[in-house]
Design a protein around this nucleic acid. Structure first.
Lengths: 243, 243
DNA sequence: GTCTATAGGCGGATAGAC
DNA sequence: GTCTATCCGCCTATAGAC
């Protein structure tokens, strides 16, 4: 009953919780999130399945914990890349963060599938997951902000029909940035995960071989799209408008 | 034993096969591909589960059939959009095909997840799926080809390190197009499915509201990236290079 | 081609003893 | 907090009758 005893128990609880999540992550890789089973986790851990219910009241709560962990992990990877590149210019920071996100995804394909792949049928993520899910996006917003501060942010065009939505997104996400750049950023954010998802999920099999070089180039193109680099001059033989 | 009887039986077989796939697609929506179960399909169809094995020798064969159907369906939607827009210029054809792919995905989210979402654990698609999977990409290649024929294709830059891979992809996919455009096209192809996937899988919840307008703008930006439109002039206050 | 029956598994979740 | 026992459901796949 001493505070020491409470500390010991609390520590044990944390360790068992971590062991459960570790084993669950292992099984994620083998069976997928849809088939994540408390029973199988318990079996592998040498515990009775009913004992797990003291740690996670249901299968879905365990899933939620894994999702938050995964978002936090990829978010931390993005933040670490940003911090390591703090001396570089914004365009280079952008590319390095993109590459860090890709590296994380390739190193953790099943956790990547859990958070950016198909939703798990019958499961809806609770609001607890939102802050962790936002971390990667915040890193990109921060890079854009710094670029604006350095006055090296090019402003892309915006068609009139998108103006209301652009203003709304801007108010929500980054009121201090121009709506043109916020809109481009949201698009680039989604497109980045298209590139990564195609690589992780195998759509690039038999299509792209040198994926690292391909990705680096694509990330640079995304940086151009959000205004972190000037639009390049085309080398084409003709101006692109039809006669 | 007459040829008529054979015809009747063949027709019945086709109809039952179609009914099985229809019911399986229905269940895909409710339980997901990972839990697709021959038994549940049979139950819903009022058949004995063992009877289904006369049509599909295993669960995986049924899954393969559903995957091929889904690729063919989204491919046909892309081709139909291309054909309907045959009078328009390449940039407009690009955008219309992108929108058709998005519309298909939103109308068939679970089939979309089956082909462009997380891989089904324990299942590997056989080579039979490759031709169907390539249809959407071929539509985009065709649009690029036509643009080149009309001499309205801008050629983006390529860094030296990507040259070998660009040449390799070009030889594989479209030897008659410039490697710069082929590389940009492959990137845009992946990015397109990033945009669509984020919408279908819910990543845009609470972020993008007017998704149709947002997508149209993003698709135009992709068209610019592959050279179907000239790069736009930035309106930014300053040139984008850092001092 | 369809059925019943069967083998040999799997799962979530709870009750109640210790 | 962990256990055993239990309820009740699910699955793939096959054998053999009709």
């Amino acid at each position: 009953m001493s505070s020491t005893a409470r500390g010991v128990r609390a520590r044990a609880r944390i360790e068992v919780t971590a062991a459960i999540k570790d084993e669950a992550r292992r099984q994620l890789a083998e069976e997928g999130a849809a088939k994540l089973s408390l029973r199988a986790v318990a079996r592998e851990l040498g515990m009775a399945s009913s004992a797990l219910y003291r740690y996670f009241p249901s299968r879905d709560e365990l899933l939620t914990a894994l999702i938050i962990d995964a978002y936090d992990s990829i978010g931390a990877a993005a933040e670490a890349a940003r911090d390591a590149a703090s001396g570089s210019d914004p365009a280079r920071r952008w590319t390095l963060v993109c590459e860090a996100v890709r590296v994380w995804a390739l190193a953790h394909p099943h956790e990547y599938a859990l958070i950016y792949g198909s939703p798990v049928p019958g499961y809806t993520a609770p609001d607890d997951t939102v802050p962790a899910a936002a971390r990667v996006g915040h890193v990109f917003i921060g890079i854009m902000r710094a670029a604006q501060g350095d006055a090296c942010l090019d402003r892309p065009e915006l068609p009139p029909g998108l103006r209301p939505e652009a203003d709304r997104m801007t108010a929500d996400l980054a009121p201090d940035l121009p709506p043109e750049n916020v809109t481009a950023l949201v698009a680039a954010w989604a497109e980045l995960f298209g590139l990564i998802g195609f690589e992780v999920f195998g759509q690039f099999n038999r299509v792209v071989e040198d994926r690292k070089a391909f990705f680096r180039h694509a990330a640079d193109r995304l940086a151009r799209g959000v205004g972190l680099m000037p639009p390049q001059q085309g080398e084409g033989a003709t101006p692109a408008r039809r006669a």
